[in-house]
Amino acid sequence: MADEVKLLGVVGSPFVCRVQIALKFKGIEYKFVQENLANKSDQLLKYNPVYKKVPVFVHNEKPISESLVILEYIDEVWKNNPIFPSDPYHRALARFWSKFIDDKIVTPSFKSVFSVDEKEREKSIAETTEALEILENELKDKFFGGQEFGYVDIAAVYIAFWIPLFQDIIGMKLFTADNFQKLHKWSQEFLNHPTVKEIMPPRDPLFSFFKGVHDNLHSSSK
């Protein structure tokens, strides 16, 4: 019996994008179910009743949520093209740095764009910059996963694609080749990888969408 694989998501989500990259890299066929987060489907509420958000990965009617957890599950079930290191210590480090990316980069950088509180924005920009500096020093190879991208690289897709998008919206050049030489080079290598290139969403519609959200938030706060 063939595996039945579904991914509930939205186009333009970095968390959904993580799962799509892993699925493409491993050559797993799946059905993409587009969700509307303003009007959540019964299917989404059934599969993820706790958080009620995407992505939700459904394998033979067994749902799993949270993108980093989904990546681990995919790598354990489909053994080809591993994205996790085989060594237990390096696996633990991969989990650590991926959580670091979510806690110390994704969350504050999002606040730095969409928070209407100026002090919170400044604090978030400082936190993001500090975390990027730490990650810059951690990058020792072409990718975090070595010569081929892996779990941490996929987790860091937000840095490669969404941070440049957001900094263009607010007119700030935080993540540049001058400021973060190794990370910036990594981001170009990662985005130009054939697997990743095929998955990334079109930039212009996303820029327009997030710019609209940003402008509406800041105009209504004045």
Rank of each mutant, 00 (worst) to 15 (best):
V50C: 08
S187R: 02
Y30N: 11
G171S: 04
A155I: 02
E122D: 09
R18H: 09
A156I: 05
Q34H: 15
I74W: 05
W97Q: 13
E4V: 15
V10H: 04
R91K: 14
P14Q: 07
S115P: 13
H218P: 06
V58R: 03
Y30L: 06
R203E: 10
L165Q: 00
A2L: 11
G171F: 02
N36A: 06
N192M: 10
K99C: 11
P49V: 11
C17R: 05
E66Y: 06
S109P: 00
K79A: 13
P55S: 10
I74H: 06
K79G: 05
H214D: 04
F144A: 02
N137F: 02
F32M: 12
S41I: 04
N179G: 14
G150K: 01
K222F: 07
L45Q: 08
N192E: 13
L135K: 04
F84L: 15
I74R: 04
Y158A: 03
I101N: 12
Q20D: 07
F161L: 09
E35V: 07
N216S: 14
P164G: 01
V196K: 08
E130A: 15
P63Q: 12
D102K: 08
K99A: 14
S115R: 12
M200G: 07
P82A: 09
Q188C: 07
Y89M: 13
I125C: 07
E61A: 15
W97F: 14
L93T: 10
F100E: 04
Y89A: 08
D75L: 03
M172Y: 08
P108C: 04
P49Q: 12
L93H: 03
V77M: 05
S86I: 05
S208C: 02
E138L: 02
E29F: 04
N80Q: 15
L71S: 05
G145E: 04
V16P: 01
T107C: 11
K31P: 13
Y30C: 11
A22F: 10
E148S: 13
Q188T: 13
F96S: 12
D75K: 00
W162F: 13
D103M: 12
K185S: 09
Y30I: 09
I154A: 05
P49G: 11
I74T: 06
K104G: 00
E118R: 14
R203W: 08
H59K: 07
S219H: 15
P82V: 09
G146E: 00
V106Y: 10
P108T: 08
E198N: 10
E120C: 08
F114G: 02
K53F: 12
A22N: 12
W78G: 10
V50P: 14
L174P: 00
F143W: 01
K182T: 00
S86F: 06
I21K: 13
L44K: 01
H59S: 07
D178Q: 14
D75N: 06
K182W: 01
R95N: 11
S67Y: 04
P201W: 03
K40C: 08
W162L: 00
L217K: 10
F96K: 13
F143E: 00
I70W: 01
S86P: 03
